[in-house]
């Protein structure tokens, strides 16, 4: 067990972060809005934590970084992300269509270019030596696991609340939702802000976890990757993006392990598995959208009908009373 954690502790924490980032993409998608901004807010959150912990909250080299300061940084990252999300969301979400996707792409690119040029973000080199609250990487689980549980519980409750139902009604038919008294712009912006806050907070923890932060964190590519978590995992229930994030982050390691197993694959196949994993991602996204438009995990999986799944049970006699 100890060896396992030593080897895969880093990966497990990364998988947890990925699950939350998938969730942050899923929240706007609940209201039918494609946002590619999670990577941008993740980058902003990371910069906030990196700058704060190396300036205001600076600790002597090697000294442990107080956890309450980390929580404070997460709070600031969340608030800043929320404000920024309102500024970006309101103009683009009062329109229908793909304007949010375009505005969020613009946001991600602007964040990248600005962080490359500002002095406070360390330019192209970035920020180094971010202080560590824990002695080893796996201990970040004390922050990451509760965070994932809380955000998953939040999403679970959201799906069953008035707000969540308003999101889904906008996704299914915006005009009809508006006619029923749902304010589309308000709820679309709300869903976008929720995703932004989560991504920003994950970024803040991630900056400490990775020890260094630069403009290569949170690019357009990363956004597409997080989108893949949702599309492949499933975009109809919060379990989908979480599973998608966990599985797809583990996938490269699995592929690498497969590629390194001697005599399992011919050499060219093994090389493809390790070098070509992004090709696999891209193809998976296309196959996923065409053959599994709802993703691998759909709400119907949770309905307990063991007999019917094997074609033995009978369909519910739903119309019986009406016909009688």
């Amino acid at each position: 067990m100890e060896d396992f954690i030593k080897q895969y502790g880093f990966l497990i924490i990364q998988m947890t972060f990925a699950a939350m980032l998938g969730l942050s993409m899923y929240l706007p998608l609940m209201a039918g809005q494609l946002s590619l901004a999670s990577a941008g807010f993740y980058a902003i959150g990371g910069y906030i934590a990196a700058v704060m912990s190396t300036t205001v909250f600076a600790v002597p080299r090697g000294a442990p970084f107080p956890i309450e300061h980390l929580l404070m940084e997460m709070l600031v990252a969340g608030v800043v992300s929320a404000i920024l999300a309102v500024i970006v969301g309101v103009p683009s979400l009062r329109l229908r269509g793909i304007y949010l996707a375009l505005a969020t792409i613009a946001l991600v690119e602007i964040v990248r270019v600005v962080s490359l040029n500002l002095e406070i973000t360390g330019g192209a080199i970035g920020i180094f030596g971010i202080p560590q609250p824990f002695n080893d990487k796996f201990s970040y689980g004390y922050i990451a696991f509760p965070m994932l549980l809380i955000s998953a519980f939040f999403a679970y409750r959201l799906e069953r609340s008035r707000i969540g139902r308003a999101f889904v009604s906008i996704r299914e038919d915006e005009l009809a939702a508006a006619a029923m008294g749902v304010n589309p712009t308000y709820y679309k912006v709300l869903s976008f802000v929720m995703g932004a806050v989560l991504a920003g907070m994950v970024g803040a923890v991630s900056a400490h976890f990775l020890n260094t932060w630069n403009s290569r964190q949170g690019t357009f590519d990363a956004s597409v990757l997080y989108l893949a978590f949702v599309i492949i995992g499933g975009s109809r229930t919060f379990v989908g993006p979480i599973m998608g994030g966990l599985l797809l982050t583990a996938l490269p390691e699995v592929l690498r392990a497969l590629a390194n197993t001697p005599d399992l694959f011919a050499a060219p196949v093994a090389k493809f598995l390790s070098d070509g994993r992004w090709i696999v991602y891209g193809v998976l996204i296309v196959i996923g959208t065409i053959f599994f438009p709802q993703g691998l995990i759909t709400p119907s999986l949770f309905k307990w009908r063991p007999l019917k799944r094997w074609g033995l049970g009978r369909a519910k006699p739903a119309l019986k009373e009406e016909t009688a």
């Binding site: 494609l34 793909i98 599309i231 070098d275 992004w278 090709i279 991602y281 996923g288 959208t289």
Partner: peptide, 24 residues
């Protein structure tokens, strides 16, 4: 007759695949 959003996502997938095939 799928949601246009899905088509957008699948075109993103194609973009990722092509760019990485080139790199490969």
């Amino acid at each position: 007759g799928a949601d246009p959003l899905l088509t957008l996502v699948s075109s993103l997938g194609v973009a990722v695949a092509i760019v990485n095939v080139i790199q490969y």
